[in-house]
């Protein structure tokens, strides 16, 4: 069984639904408090996938994800590097992505793990924003997004605006590391226009991967959008399907696939 470590503690708060998403995708996930890793009660090496879920670690104080990243860097950096070297997978969503950003887990061909190449800044509107958005998958390298084209899922963040310098942007693009961009329901780019791009992210970027495609971080929450019944359009779709004598699929496969791809990677 593929073993998933769901990181928790200090204000991370999406661990339960993240574990559920991996479990129904066929994995065996375990919610582990960071202090149990630091005290060596648990070991990173015992898992195949690490997920950094969303939440408000340390209340976003000193910058979202920063304090939790410091704690990881101070205590678990070597274990984490070892984990990456053994070609396992890491997924980060929202606050998890912010933590990974501060840790510098998104290596470029020209940089090493540990070097920060981008930053995630306050939304343009300077306010927390919770809404459903569409994403376009632009990437053929990322392990998590195989077979995903356009998908629909919620964002819920105050600090979600992707930011980096032109050089990094070019390298990300060239090396096929931009995974998800905000788009309309047909997949046309948001071009920075609110609310299709919910935070003003540079080049509409919602998620990226490292140079190997095995480490992905994204702002929107696929684990909150596994079931069709959670979609805001559920009742409309239900009504239209009923008139056509159809049923609605139980799952939103495009989001579910992110978790299934991760599990299948080990098969």
């Amino acid at each position: 069984m593929v073993r998933v470590l769901i990181m928790s503690g200090y204000g991370i708060n999406c661990e339960k639904e993240s574990a559920h998403a991996f479990n129904i995708a066929g994995a065996d996930s375990e919610i582990v408090h960071i202090n149990d890793l630091i005290s060596k009660k648990k070991k990173l090496a015992d898992y195949d996938i690490i997920m950094f879920p969303g939440g408000f670690s340390y209340g976003d104080d000193t910058g979202s994800g920063n304090a939790f990243a410091n704690k990881l860097r101070n205590h678990l950096w070597d274990d984490l590097l070892e984990f990456i070297k053994s070609e396992k997978l890491i997924l980060g969503v929202c606050n998890g992505f912010q933590i990974m950003t501060h840790l510098g887990l998104f290596s470029l061909p020209s940089t090493d793990y540990g070097q920060r190449v981008h930053s995630i800044r306050w939304n343009n509107q300077n306010r927390y924003e919770c809404r459903w958005v569409h994403l376009k998958n632009n990437n053929s390298k990322c392990v998590f997004t195989k077979g995903v084209d356009v998908t629909h899922l919620p964002v819920a963040h105050g600090e979600g605006r992707f930011f980096c310098d032109e050089k990094v942007l070019e390298e990300l693009e060239k090396n096929n590391q931009i995974v998800f961009t905000y788009c309309d329901e047909k997949g046309n780019p948001a071009n920075g226009v609110f609310p299709i791009n919910p935070n003003g992210a540079m080049r509409d970027i919602a998620g990226i991967c490292d140079s190997t495609g095995r480490i992905m971080g994204m702002m929107p929450h696929p684990e909150r959008a596994i079931y069709s019944v959670n979609e805001p359009e559920f009742h409309l779709k239900k009504e239209i399907s009923k008139r056509k004598n159809n049923n609605i699929d139980e799952f939103i496969e495009t989001n579910f696939n992110i978790f299934k791809n991760a599990v299948n990677y080990f098969k």
């Binding site: 339960k16 809404r131 819920a156 596994i226």
Partner: peptide
């Protein structure tokens, strides 16, 4: 409504804002 997270815990069915 939209500055309050209503999707966390993945329990939201009828949401604070309804319809297109």
């Amino acid at each position: 409504s939209r500055q309050y997270d209503h999707e966390v815990q993945n329990n939201s069915i009828i949401k604070p804002l309804q319809g297109k």
